[in-house]
């Protein structure tokens, strides 16, 4: 049994390889990009609009509100990154109901890549908001002694972020695979439904945690109020 879609390699040339993770990621990217293009190609600014436009508006506005609720003052500035994180993880989880589809988020390489993106973006936003010195000063708070712990916390939360998502997605796949061999008919379907719910929850958790990390890295100017959630 393959633990990760990384192991399913279509083509390889030395270090460069084309595995299932990358291929399904491209497929997801294609679906998302083309779907968005089609829906937003004929947007109506009036009161009458299509169902798909309504759906997209609901999703986008909900993400914007969620970011604002966490405490960031300019949610649209972060919507591109955080919204894409959520959509990517959520759509990947939803697509598990397609037979033969392997969610890229079930690969530790993908979750690590996403966590690395968060790991890099958080200080970037922090530096953009507070300046280089201002941001790195936050590592010395409340005292200098806390510097190593802050650095460890930074790395560990990135690791936790990636492993949490990977574990949940991979375990869902694994459980369904195991159950298919034991009780092939009804129970895997129930577990698939549960997997869909778990996937949505994981997408929410991943994007909200990323938002919280960014909010924590922002100075007072970038925040609507004091951050409510702290890791």
């Amino acid at each position: 049994m393959q633990l990760s879609p990384d192991e399913h390699i279509f083509w390889q040339y030395g270090f460069v390889k084309l595995n299932a993770t990358i291929v399904f990621t491209w497929a997801l990217m294609l679906v998302l990009a083309v779907g968005s293009k089609i829906i937003t190609g004929k947007l109506a600014t009036g009161l009458k609009r299509s169902r798909w436009q309504n759906l997209m508006e609901i999703v986008v506005v909900a993400m914007e509100n969620q970011i604002a609720e966490v405490g960031l003052r300019e949610p649209r500035r972060f919507l591109g990154f955080i919204g894409t994180l959520f959509l990517f993880v959520a759509i990947a989880s939803l697509c598990t109901i397609i037979p033969g589809f392997k969610p890229p988020t079930g690969s530790l390489s993908t979750t690590v890549a996403l966590a690395l993106c968060v790991f890099v973006v958080v200080p970037l936003f922090g530096i953009e908001d507070q300046g280089l010195i201002g941001y790195f000063k936050s590592y010395l708070e409340p005292t200098v002694i806390m510097l190593p712990f802050n650095i460890i916390g930074e790395i560990s939360r990135t690791l936790a972020l990636s492993v949490r998502l990977f574990g949940n997605m991979m375990s869902g796949e694994m459980i369904i695979g195991i159950l298919l061999t034991i009780t092939p008919y009804i129970f895997p379907i129930v577990m698939t439904l549960l997997g869909l719910l778990t996937g949505m929850v994981q997408a929410y958790i991943f994007s909200v945690l990323a938002t919280v990390y960014i909010a924590a890295a922002m100075g007072d100017q970038g925040l609507k109020q004091e951050p409510e959630a702290q890791q």
Binding site: A33, M56, T84, S107, S109, T110, A113
Partner: peptide, 29 residues
Amino acid sequence: LIDWFTVIAQVVNFLILVWLMKRFLYAPI
């Protein structure tokens, strides 16, 4: 479990996806 080429590829893919989403979804909506 971690394939570093895939990691790099996924980082690049994700950044492209962010750009695509901004371009085709968030901005128009």
